[in-house]
Lab assay of single mutants.
Amino acid sequence: MDPFVVLVLCLSCLLLLSIWRQSSGRGKLPPGPTPLPVIGNILQIDIKDVSKSLTNLSKIYGPVFTLYFGLERMVVLHGYEVVKEALIDLGEEFSGRGHFPLAERANRGFGIVFSNGKRWKEIRRFSLMTLRNFGMGKRSIEDRVQEEARCLVEELRKTKASPCDPTFILGCAPCNVICSIIFQKRFDYKDQQFLNLMEKLNENIRIVSTPWIQICNNFPTIIDYFPGTHNKLLKNLAFMESDILEKVKEHQESMDINNPRDFIDCFLIKMEKEKQNQQSEFTIENLVITAADLLGAGTETTSTTLRYALLLLLKHPEVTAKVQEEIERVIGRNRSPCMQDRGHMPYTDAVVHEVQRYIDLIPTSLPHAVTCDVKFRNYLIPKGTTILTSLTSVLHDNKEFPNPEMFDPRHFLDEGGNFKKSNYFMPFSAGKRICVGEGLARMELFLFLTFILQNFNLKSLIDPKDLDTTPVVNGFASVPPFYQLCFIPV
């Protein structure tokens, strides 16, 4: 058959498939802009700032609406009420993970971030239990974070109060905490193996944040037939998995079943207990991918939040002064901060919360999916439909947070200066898919920041009023603009 005829037939089939998918069930789905064949609503979305586009569309179609990214149908949730109703009140029905062709290629359905069903539930339950087990290797997770915080302070001392970009050092600290939990080992910041790991993690975040990856996920045929950065992403992930597998083999040879040292040991012990169960989800494949998931999810998000926190503290020296006064009063100079201190430091706690609220790190979270046909607000959402959640619409709700575009710790303080919780605080998402490392991340943010401010004054290279804190939105995360500062020993 003539190649031209084959091409026309293929394009015609794709067009018909697109029209059929977009028209099927439209009477039951939430409203939304009319999609174009094949490309859907992509032309109506700013790929570099999806969150802003969703906010604009919500003003037209309401808090629940339908979009098509290519052939992929998505239902968008915008605003606290619908997000709570879906992710919390109907948590089980909305607990699936959205379709990610690239991740599915890399992870093969294993791990904790992109798995679904029984596998996801069992691996998540085990990971939560293990991360909360403060007795691994007779050292609590808090001990590990405190140790890394001391190392971080010593690295900052080496800058000798000269101007520096904190990106690298602030990236090393949370990565080392995860390494300590998974591998029972922290690395020197100049260790070549550690630097290679950091390089792969950072490069992957840069790649994932590009519009090209959005295109690959919406048109998965590209993955096999086109060159691009997605190939580098898959190569980096394969490198990390190979490295983790080597460490798993080392653990198998040296493990003491009665004295687990780290996450890998705990997983291997669980595998041993379930070795007679042919349906067990505790396999080497799941261990390797879960460890890679924890490394990827637990490094860049925390380091970016820390980097943004220091920029905001530079911009608002009056806030920094209040935090340091609270540190001096509650902790002093002669001991290290600990998590028990947080309950006695409402202002510092409010500042950490406000940093996370203000920066809105992951504006749309990772997409969910419905696990069955769901009736939601008089609409029928078919099983498997991807759910896109606007966390921006919750964290920047102007009824809950007056002047949401302003950095103001009073958003989390009552009139008496006591810490005030808010149900709208969802930087880790909400419901059954809430970030498994939430507790660890909150511990790291509090301890790293208090250790830094206990030991250093922060000095800006320019007038604080002239510092730009506008986030650089890159399609996946909101990151701070480049800046330098000086760490002046107190």
Rank of each mutant, 00 (worst) to 15 (best):
P3Q: 08
V5C: 13
S12I: 12
L14D: 00
L15F: 06
L16F: 10
L16R: 01
W20P: 05
R21N: 11
Q22T: 12
Q22V: 12
G27E: 10
G32L: 00
P35T: 06
Q44H: 14
G62I: 00
V75D: 00
D89T: 10
G96N: 09
G98Q: 13
E104R: 13
A106F: 15
G111S: 04
G111M: 02
V113P: 03
G117T: 05
W120C: 06
E122M: 10
R125V: 08
F126I: 05
L131W: 02
L131D: 02
G137I: 11
L156S: 01
R157A: 11
K160D: 08
A161Q: 12
S162M: 14
P163R: 08
P163T: 10
D165H: 03
D165K: 03
P166G: 04
G171C: 13
N176R: 04
N176D: 05
F183G: 08
Y189Q: 05
Q192H: 15
L195R: 15
L201Y: 07
I205D: 09
I222W: 13
I222G: 05
I223A: 06
H230F: 08
K232A: 09
L234S: 06
K235Y: 15
L237E: 05
F239E: 14
F239C: 12
L245F: 09
E246D: 10
K247W: 13
E253Y: 11
N258W: 07
L268N: 01
K270P: 02
K273G: 11
Q276A: 14
Q278W: 13
E285P: 12
L287E: 00
L287D: 00
L287Q: 00
V288R: 05
V288I: 12
I289F: 15
T290R: 01
L294M: 13
L295W: 04
T304Y: 15
Y308F: 12
L312F: 05
L313N: 00
L314H: 03
P317N: 07
V319L: 04
V319Y: 09
V323I: 12
Q324L: 06
Q324R: 12
E325F: 08
E326G: 01
I327A: 03
V330A: 06
R333M: 11
D341N: 05
G343W: 13
A350L: 01
V351L: 09
V352A: 07
E354D: 02
R357T: 00
L361W: 01
L361V: 10
I362G: 02
L366A: 04
H368Q: 04
T371G: 06
N378V: 02
L380W: 14
I381H: 00
K383A: 10
L388T: 06
T389A: 08
L391A: 02
L395N: 07
H396N: 15
D397H: 04
D408G: 01
L413T: 05
G417T: 06
F419P: 05
S422C: 05
P427G: 04
S429A: 08
K432M: 15
E438G: 06
R442W: 02
L445H: 05
F446L: 02
L447T: 15
T450I: 07
Q454V: 01
I462K: 15
F476Q: 07
F487E: 02
I488A: 12
